[in-house]
Design a protein around this nucleic acid. Sequence first.
DNA 1: GAGTGGTCTAGACCACCCG
DNA 2: GGGTGGTCTAGACCACTCG
Lengths: 242, 242
Amino acid sequence: MANYTRLEGIPMYVWIREDLRREIRDGIYKRGEKLPSEQELAIKYRVSRMTVRQSIAELIDEGLLFRRHGVGTFVAIPHLERDHTRLTNFFDAEGGEGSATRASLLAMKVLPAGQKIARALDIAKGDSVIEVKTLRYADDVPITVHDAYIPHKLFSNLQKEHLETQNLWSFFERNGFRVKRAIQKIEARQATKDIANMMKIKEGSPILYKERTVYSENGTPVEFTYCYNRGDIYSLTVALER
Amino acid sequence: MANYTRLEGIPMYVWIREDLRREIRDGIYKRGEKLPSEQELAIKYRVSRMTVRQSIAELIDEGLLFRRHGVGTFVAIPHLERDHTRLTNFFDAEGGEGSATRASLLAMKVLPAGQKIARALDIAKGDSVIEVKTLRYADDVPITVHDAYIPHKLFSNLQKEHLETQNLWSFFERNGFRVKRAIQKIEARQATKDIANMMKIKEGSPILYKERTVYSENGTPVEFTYCYNRGDIYSLTVALER
DNA sequence: GAGTGGTCTAGACCACCCG
DNA sequence: GGGTGGTCTAGACCACTCG
């Protein structure tokens, strides 16, 4: 039986996964309830058990389901925030949705990397980096100063125009670097005079400070950013696992 | 051929996974280098290709490898921080390692849940919760005030003695709730008089403020915590994905 | 013992990428 | 065209949990 890549090129395990997701969302399977066994699902969807397992594996990874050896597969209690938080935090730097955000470019220039930036980007001290400094607004209130550094060697073709028509990460992807993960160091600080002036707040106001390194799929650091967020407005939500 | 659960009960895919991990660590496969094809690995380890794929899948999940359809499987550049950050952040609340930390119990009492805590713990407003308030020190300097709330219904057997001999999460596990993930909201604030007094800092000093909900494997919220960290000492590192 | 998930096989064809 | 990963089969036996 020719079962490969049926239904307009959608793999069966994707179809099953989305069907299960929908049934859970629609309450056909409820919180804590047991799903049909893998065997039963295999029969229902007319696939092998391994294919069912592949579907389920991804939902377990997301935390929507969990398994108990010798007992069954169950619907976990969904905490809606999770997916949302991931995306929010990962894309907020470059064109968030939700509220009316915009960014103004303060500076863009090439300069030699200092010790810290070089270390973060895994390049030599003194190697060229592109600095992209922006001020970001939510509903026309300045909330964040972004100061990003990008290895010149990898993205020497970056132009100001790119930043106007697309976000940085899309640009990275177009150059063969798929953004995959980031590591952030977060601190509470007080606004320096510079930062306070830019955001029109008082010197010493609380600032949520972040240093972030962004990595592509193959582990290459593509961006290192200093980020100053207005403490009285900005909060950060992150999910931790295991 | 009876190949199931060979080698002292260690599944083959675990064995292969760890073997690959070791070879990568030892530099037999280097950063960015291509691994042997799945077919070749299957022959090498005398298993089916599906088993090899299972091994590789977990290493990809960890970010140690990445795949390119039609090209091959490659070693990603490791960024050591990642695993470290996860663990650090997930366990720092209850007995970290590394530096000389200790916690003193400020209060433990049962009280009715307010709106916010009830919502976070998915219980009714007014339901009993156990408050566990601690002051945590690193090298005898107070750095964090923890204020945790736990559903009384689930953990009515919690005693002060438990907190002295084990951390909260071990206690949860012993009661059938395996801690799996947490969601944290992070803000920069200024120390109130209360908090400042407890940590012996000036009122208005920067505070890294967290609200955290901890979930067990099945999605049940088991703990909601307010957390005030000294901004000048404490920083938080988190990894974000995709 | 019955039922579940955990591991594994020995193949197959498809989709993608490269020279 | 040749090699790679992506999807899938139709079974098998093992390990765990429960009544």
